[in-house]
Design a protein around this nucleic acid. Structure first.
Lengths: 296, 296
DNA sequence: CGAGATTGTTCACAGACGTGAACAATCTAT
DNA sequence: ATAGATTGTTCACGTCTGTGAACAATCTCG
């Protein structure tokens, strides 16, 4: 056969810009990449890449080859994906990223049942409270709290998460305990960066109208963990998913405030890169989560 | 990498219509083909081919995959060929077919020099007097005497070949020896099948007008060897390239006739499948032949 | 209808291929 | 400027993959 792997590797090298990056992406060693490209050049009898140990340049021949072969390789991958989406059974590696607290508290216990149901799916969980780039790090699904901001992604709502307003005992001793949402205007709020209006806090209470108060923000951060640490250190008041701070409330490290005025529930979403059809492994995983999240 | 060889093999199976044929074409074992296809089906989680031990049918999924991947594979092969044609050095397997007598008398001696000049070319000579299908049997070049009839092929004239009019002594004893072309109308002519007008023989002589005579054909054949045997057996008069019957004339098995009236020289051609640009290995081979045929 | 031929699949073995460490060459920091 | 980091390449070793024969299933020809 007209040795295709060589070309696949070559295309990957061109697209990633280096042999090492291509090796990482293809999950083979640098040595193998070097061999593949060398073999292809030898077979075609033409140098494809000018390598200067620090910078790769496409030869004229290399550019010509990439122009035509690059799209063909992509076509094949797309065709494969299409077949898999249409008629395939759940199978293959499934890369999922989720908030660490959600993973520990809920995902890990549920996962065993999922893997039993779909033995051909190989799950790769990345429990991490940072915001990841789905396409860049090639995740199939991300579990997130916030509503999505990146329009190139699509989301599916899995469940509501209850948010609790909390602060540390030390902070309350210093700044006093608010009794109504209106009292918050005198307090310091810790907010999550990725929100529409981080310092506008909404509350709802049974039988009353929704309330919006402006808090004075002193710390805005894109890390759940950092915000929790700030709250524990007594820097201010913040609002967190119940799951995330259940332990701290039970142990008394954080105190729940305004119990009659809950924040409107946030949405727990499964987020995935835009695709016409989802691969079966992703579909069944999200379905599984939605089914098992109903009781919670 | 999204395992491409699997798809290449699958495409080949579809195009050739059977696992065995694909194995032949790809020059791997049937077992390997079976494994490749099986692996692909397993990876996609869908059956691609319905195999009934005697007939292959494309699954809906298989048809979808082939529709898109087939052209992509062809594109890649074309891109490879293009690069090789534009900037490549002579390299790879070169399949050549030539008349046996030409191969033995001329090609084999010349070939050693060619291989020394281009050590990366692997020559595969098929010396055979039958007419082969270039594309079907995947030859890169054919050396032929006749002008080409198949318009899908292109040819390049390499040299003129001198044709001699000959017959066996036995035949001449029975039928007499013709002294002029006009005498041939009483004789039996053995003709090669693939000629415009097999029974119209042309002659030219120094200082005289070209002559055309009609001979009575009793045997028309598409095999050089068969015609030679017929001539040796005394069945009739025929015209052959000098190289082809030099030995028989020297040994007296065939007698040269009408020495003053030679047939117009035929063209020795290199014939190849139509391509925009020839691969370097083919180009240098034909150049080499043309260069070394001038003296002869 | 039955024997022969041909299909695709399975299995143990041998060879090819990728691996990982060491290497030379280059760039980029302090 | 010098040391450190990072690039692509090379080499011996161990694993994975293709091989070839045997096999069951099917079709075809007399």
């Amino acid at each position: 056969m007209s040795n295709l792997p060589d070309i696949a590797v070559f295309v990957q090298v061109v697209e990633r810009g280096s042999f090492t990056a291509a090796a990482d992406r293809l999950e083979i060693s640098k040595a193998a990449v070097s061999k593949y490209v060398g073999r292809l050049e030898h077979r075609l009898g033409a140098r494809l890449l000018n390598r200067t140990t620090r910078r790769l340049t496409l030869t004229e021949a290399g550019a010509a080859l990439y122009d035509r072969a690059g799209v063909a390789i992509a076509d094949i991958a797309a065709a494969e994906a299409e077949v898999m989406e249409l008629t395939g059974t759940p199978r293959g590696r499934l890369r999922v990223t989720a908030p660490a607290y959600f993973g520990n508290a809920f995902l890990m216990p549920a996962v065993t049942g999922f893997l039993r149901s779909y033995p051909d799916v190989e799950l790769e969980l990345d429990l991490n409270n940072r915001i990841v780039d789905l396409v860049k790090e090639r995740f199939d699904v991300a579990i997130r709290i916030t509503s999505l901001t990146d329009s190139s992604l699509v989301a599916r709502r899995l469940a509501d998460v209850r948010l609790l307003t909390v602060a540390s005992p030390e902070y309350l001793r210093k700044a006093g305990t608010p009794a109504t949402p209106a009292d918050l205007s005198d307090h310091v709020g810790l907010s999550y960066t990725l929100q529409h209006a981080p310092n506008e806090w909404h509350f709802v209470a049974d039988g009353k109208r929704p309330v919006t108060v402006h808090v004075r923000g002193c710390l805005r951060c894109n890390s759940d963990d950092a915000l929790k640490h700030a709250a524990l250190a007594g820097i201010g008041i913040t609002r967190f998913p119940e799951l995330f701070i259940g332990g701290e409330i039970a142990s008394g490290q954080l105190v729940r405030l305004l119990q009659d005025y809950e924040p409107p529930p946030a949405s727990l979403c499964a987020v995935f890169p835009t695709r016409t059809n989802l691969p079966p492994k992703v579909r069944v995983f999200v379905d599984f989560l939605a089914r098992h999240l109903k009781p919670a």
